[in-house]
Write a protein that binds this DNA or RNA. Structure first.
Length: 889
RNA sequence: GGGGGGUUAGCUCAGCUGGUUAGAGCGUCUGUCUUACACACAGAAGGCCAGAGGUUCGAGUCCUCUAUCCCCCA
């Protein structure tokens, strides 16, 4: 037996800095993160949501990794071949913006470089910084299989993207068309609805007179965007609006431009808003586009892609859209056409990436038809093939999926998967293929030019669960690991990512991509405000790891965290998590030291056979905790599982069992040692998925001290998660220990109340009918933990209530403590009477319930039995209180 | 306008399918550096579970309405 560690060598406080890096390297070098493909076992697979390759680890990533790694480690310890696959996302716009900003510091734009050189510069950036987020993820302790890490622009995922595009094009589900879109004039690209961030902003509602063609009258329209009138092709009113019914079909003369446009009736016009007359600009408003389609109004686009007014703006061509409003309003004013300008707060769409105000704009884009893809994805969730946690998000999912709209998938960017479509310079037909076609399919011309656009990044993300595993090839990984198990991510990307993965997974593989979706909430700052760089309230996970350790951060993020709900992170949570780690550290220090000090640790019986009451109790309790942790984990009640382990370690193992064991150890009785060790070792296993570093570190120090263990592995990470042994449940020992704990607490309570010095030993007399043996058996423990010098246990003795004594009522007896000169009889009577009042109230409540015939006839028998038992105990307690009081006189 | 969620101790939050006198952490108060841990130990105070109805033998938990806050979609 190696006696490696004495207590002096183990630091008094846990220091994560000395541990984490070393332990992580050990795991990697030991190959613990790479699963062994075992065809007889069902694997557990989590594909990590790929962070932006140029991004930095933020608190959302930390929460994601904490939860995913927790699940991965739990399943791995349950013996399932576990794959936690890491990867990064090329993040089209975000990355392009970052590199463009860097270039602008050098005074150059991407256009100066040209497409090819620009993309090269982005790759340089990726090669330089792309691993940073991986290194940060490692610091969290994520047990990812780094041998399988994947990047959306790698050959495999790229091949999947091209294949998918071509397949869907051939099926007619991808098409090119001219529609109204959200256009970011800074990024110079179209965006999907999901990439639009709406914000309430103060603006103005302009009422503008549009003169009628006939006569001298006019119709007044209301708009928040007067500059777009340059593109107006109609004025719409509600069909039932009597104010305007006589004007329907008339023409008005569009101010500034002088175009004749019709007055039409459309149901969607809100007569209550503004003047009830709406200018219709199909080229620059989503709603107007629809109205225009219904009434066959022409579409006039007035903007260039860079946000300046185009030739349709006539004399105003070339001015920027931000100046256009002022110029147009000025002009209208001088033409005396402005009736009023009123302040208004309205919702304005912004680019999610660069915050530029978006412009609805008609442009030619590639689209994916979503309705038919959505149907099987809806069905998969309806049929419970895919379970969403928390459940209420299924409603949100259905709500979105059932109203799904076509997805614009082309982006006018340079960084990303280039669309595999080629245009013929001669006949203008399009050829879509996996590789560049040699000739135009129509006219045989070889003058082909590839579409300059790239695909929305989410297009490749949507394929992630299968593209990372080798699809479209039938690779070994794909066949073994797909479909995956759990998709864990923030609820904010349910539509962006999760829904699309379900649709594309089913479309491409005919299988669901995962059976469970676990959605977490936002990590907020201590005031409950969303963390953001601009607000400056971000907490850096790496800073917190440096300060408190990775285990503490993970524990803080998962404690009391329920699926879907936002949580606040603050210093107190970090501290209490760190303190918990330190508690474990010190309990372990005690146990290891006790074993090391013991002369014949080789003789320790292993696994221990609990005979002593205390041992039977702690092992019974351990098994109940194992059972409840198992149940909670299976139901994804991670916070509950964590709380159960926390409470067991701190409140039962440390506060009671460990303290009680000291009595035996002091008396050279080594019988508690194997149990101390056994329970601690189980706790390390239970806690490992929650606090991987510290548990592994302790385990590595601890195992060499123990007699040969049956399933001794090289590392805790790969050892077996505890399984409940219901044979070890022991109601009798649990009940007995409750009596002991109650007695100790009662005496401590009296000591505190009467301010007895901690070192001063007192006498105690216990009078009990039912449990004298337990008190006798545990008398040394009771004396030690309650500071009692002399403990007398009698049956049916006489309480000695007087100015010299004070009594507490136990559930199976009374305890009396002599306190010479300290007792105020009046105060004692008040205390006991208060307790009696409480007891009598409870007696009434319970007997009332039991006298209720409906309760007795309708409630289940076990509930009734419990209530009867409680009533009996309550009456007994009341009797003894009354006796004690009567002796006080 | 449509949909979803929150409201429980001073603060931050748990509380699964209804069943003891509703829990934790932090904070507060009183003691203690008791040879694992002061990142600790012992003890204590503190809650009309947002409000009103209803279902039930029994409601923090289920239903309806109200108030209030937040999120998503249009």
């Amino acid at each position: 037996m190696v006696k490696a560690n004495t207590i002096d060598e183990i630091p008094k406080a846990y220091n994560p800095k000395l541990v984490e890096q070393r332990i992580y390297n050990m795991w990697v070098e030991g190959g613990h993160f790479t699963p062994i493909l075992d065809q007889t076992k069902k694997p557990f697979v989590i594909i990590m949501p790929p962070p932006n390759v140029t991004g930095e680890l933020h608190m959302g990533h930390a929460l994601t990794a904490a939860l995913e790694d927790l699940m991965a480690r739990w399943h791995r310890m349950r013996g399932e071949p576990t794959l936690y696959l890491p990867g990064t996302d090329h993040a089209g716009i975000a990355t392009q913006v970052v590199v463009e900003r860097m270039l602008s510091k050098e005074g150059i734009s991407r256009h100066d470089l040209g497409r090819e050189q620009f993309v090269e510069r982005v790759w340089e950036w990726v090669h330089q910084y792309g691993d940073r987020i991986y290194e940060q993820t490692k610091r969290l302790g994520a047990s990812c299989d780094w041998t399988r890490k994947s990047f959306t622009l790698d050959d495999g995922p790229s091949k999947a993207v091209i294949n998918t595009f071509v397949n869907l094009y051939n099926k007619g589900l991808i098409f090119r068309g001219e529609r109204i879109n959200n256009w970011c004039s800074r990024c110079e690209t179209a965006l999907s609805d999901l990439e639009v961030f709406h914000r309430e902003e103060a603006g103005a509602l302009y009422s503008i007179k549009y003169p009628l063609e006939k006569g001298s009258g006019h119709i007044t329209i209301a708009t928040t965007r007067p500059e777009t009138l340059l593109g107006d092709t109609g004025v719409a009113v509600h069909p039932q609006d009597e104010r305007y019914s006589g004007l329907l079909g008339e023409l008005v003369i569009l101010p500034v431009i002088g175009r004749r446009i019709p007055i039409i009736a459309d149901e969607t016009v809100d007569p209550e808003f503004g003047t009830g007359a709406l200018k219709v600009t199909p080229g620059h408003d989503h709603n107007d586009f629809d109205i225009g389609e219904r009434h066959k109004l022409p579409i006039i686009t007035i903007l260039n892609l860079d946000g300046t007014l185009n030739e349709n703006a006539g004399e105003y061509q070339g001015i920027n859209r931000s100046d256009a409003r002022d110029v147009i309003v000025e002009r209208l004013d001088s033409d005396n056409l402005i009736e009023s300008i009123k302040p208004i707060v309205h919702s304005v769409g912004h680019c999610q990436r660069c915050d530029t105000v978006l412009e609805p704009l008609v442009s030619k884009q590639w689209y994916m038809k979503m309705k038919s893809l959505a149907l099987p994805a809806i069905k998969a969730v309806k049929d419970n093939q895919i379970k969403i946690i928390p459940e209420y998000f299924t409603k949100v999912y259905f709500n979105w999926m059932e109203n799904i709209r076509d997805w614009p998938i082309s982006r006018q960017l340079w960084w990303g998967h280039r669309i595999p479509a080629w245009y013929c310079n001669r006949c203008e037909s399009v050829t879509v293929d996996k590789e560049k076609p040699l000739k135009c399919v129509k006219c045989d011309s070889d003058e082909l030019e590839q579409d300059s656009d790239v695909l929305d990044t989410w297009f490749s993300s949507a394929l992630w669960p299968h593209s990372t595993l080798g699809w479209p090839d039938k690779s070994e990984d794909f066949q073994y690991f797909y479909p995956t198990s759990v998709l864990e991510t923030g609820h904010d990307i349910l539509f962006f990512w999760v829904a699309r993965m379900i649709m594309m997974g089913i479309e491409n593989t005919s299988q669901i991509p995962f059976d469970t979706v676990y959605l977490h909430g936002l990590v907020r700052d201590p005031e409950g405000v969303k963390m953001s760089k601009t607000k400056g309230n971000v907490m850096d996970p790496i800073d917190l790891i440096d300060l408190y350790g990775a285990d503490a951060l993970r524990f803080a993020l998962t404690s009391g965290n329920t699926p879907g709900n936002d949580m606040r992170l603050n210093e107190q949570k970090m501290e209490s998590s760190r303190n918990f780690a330190n508690k474990l550290w010190n309990a372990s220090r005690f146990v290891m030291n006790s074993i090391t000090k013991h002369d014949n640790s080789d003789e320790l019986i292993w696994p221990p056979v609990p005979e002593h009451l205390e041992d039977r109790w702690i092992i019974s309790r351990l098994n109940r905790v194992i059972c409840s942790v198992d149940l909670s984990m299976q139901e994804y009640q991670i916070g509950e599982a964590q709380r159960a382990i926390h409470d067991f370690l701190w409140n039962e193992y440390c506060d009671w069992y460990l303290e009680m064991s000291k009595v035996r150890i002091r008396n050279s009785d080594s019988s508690a040692l194997p149990v101390l060790a056994f329970v601690l070792e189980k706790i390390l296993r239970l806690l490992h998925p929650f606090m991987p570093f510290i548990t592994e570190e302790i385990w590595q120090k601890f195992i060499p001290l123990l007699p040969c263990m049956s399933d001794h592995r090289t590392a805790l990470i790969s050892s077996e998660y505890p399984v409940v042994d219901v044979e070890m449940y022991d109601d009798e020992s649990e009940s007995s220990m409750e009596d002991v704990v109650e007695l100790v607490r009662s005496i401590r309570n009296l000591r505190a109340e009467f301010r007895i010095q901690p070192h001063h030993q007192i006498e105690a007399l216990v009078d009990t009918v039912s449990t004298p043996d337990v008190y006798k058996l545990e008398s040394e423990v009771i004396k030690s933990l309650a500071g009692v010098g002399s403990l007398k246990i009698v049956q049916n003795g006489q309480d000695e209530n007087s100015s010299e004594h004070v009594s507490m009522i136990l559930r199976n007896g009374n305890v009396t403590v002599p306190l010479t000169g300290l007792v105020d009889i009046l105060q004692e009577k008040i205390r006991l009477e208060a307790e009696l009042k409480d007891v009598l109230a409870n007696t009434d409540r319970l007997s009332g319930r039991l006298e209720n015939e409906e309760f007795v006839s309708k409630a289940p028998q076990d509930v009734i039995d419990k209530e009867r038992e409680r009533l009996g105990a309550m009456i007994d307690r009341g009797d003894r209180l009354t006796q004690t009081l009567s002796r006080l006189g």
